[in-house]
Amino acid sequence: MSPFVRFSRGMLSALGVLAVSFGPTGAGAQAPPGRHVKASLVAETDAVRPGQTLTVGIRLDMEKGWHIYWRNPGDSGLPTRAKWELPAGFAAGEIRWPYPIRFTTGPLVSFGYEHDVLLPVEIRVPAALVATEVRIAARVDWLECQEACLPGRADVSLALPVRATSAPGSQAALFAEARRRLPRKDPSWRFSASSASGRLTLVVRPPRGTALREAYFYPVAPRLLDHAQPQLLTHEGGASRLALARDPNGAPADRLAGVLVAGTGVGAVAIEVDVPLVSGPARTSLKQERNP
């Protein structure tokens, strides 16, 4: 066991949180390492239960004016990545991405986060866990940009006691906030998408009683849309149409996948979209949808 873990065990058990150490920049040392974002690893609960799915979060705190990127960074940038170092039998899932905001610089648009963000990751804990404490660690790589960009990297870790029961940890509120910003699957929102001559149309039918006044679609695939083009929202009956411009050098696609953010600020909702992309003009009438 490392001296660090021994030293901090009491504190960690209490907090469920651990500090960060900035690692070397490795083979990419040609660029000065980023220093404007701090990374740490936090857990949602105060203990690890054998057989559970534990949620941890990579927390990134950015200096004012700096930002990092979403899973699709948009016109430039790189998504944050994590390489896990876990006890035997543990398995980490993919990063879950809260919906991003847009950064516009001249003719370029990118997607990411400013101020701070928590990126939740689910970790499967083996049922046959024999330990009193476990250490979860990750090497986190990101690209931090103000106007100029710097690669950032940190080795973060967290130690948690193993117990039969667990309670919300001191950082549980952060997870609640991150979950509020995670796109959700919601069958009461209906979508269809079509493609014709370089333009895509996302047809949105919100739940009854929901007016779609403002909407933005963030595509998961980096090479589907011309990110800098405005997305125009129009309405017809109970349906809304979001006109999207295709990346003229984009990859062929047979689905439209991403996140629709409806509304702005605290009232915003983020809904997962993943629908087939049909060739031809968009269909908006409900009758057509019922009889495809």
Binding site: S76, G106, R223
Partner: peptide, 14 residues
């Protein structure tokens, strides 16, 4: 014939 360009954004005038 196409791929994702990656890097820093081109530093155009605003």
């Amino acid at each position: 014939a196409t791929s994702q360009p990656y890097g820093c954004g081109v530093k155009y005038a605003e």
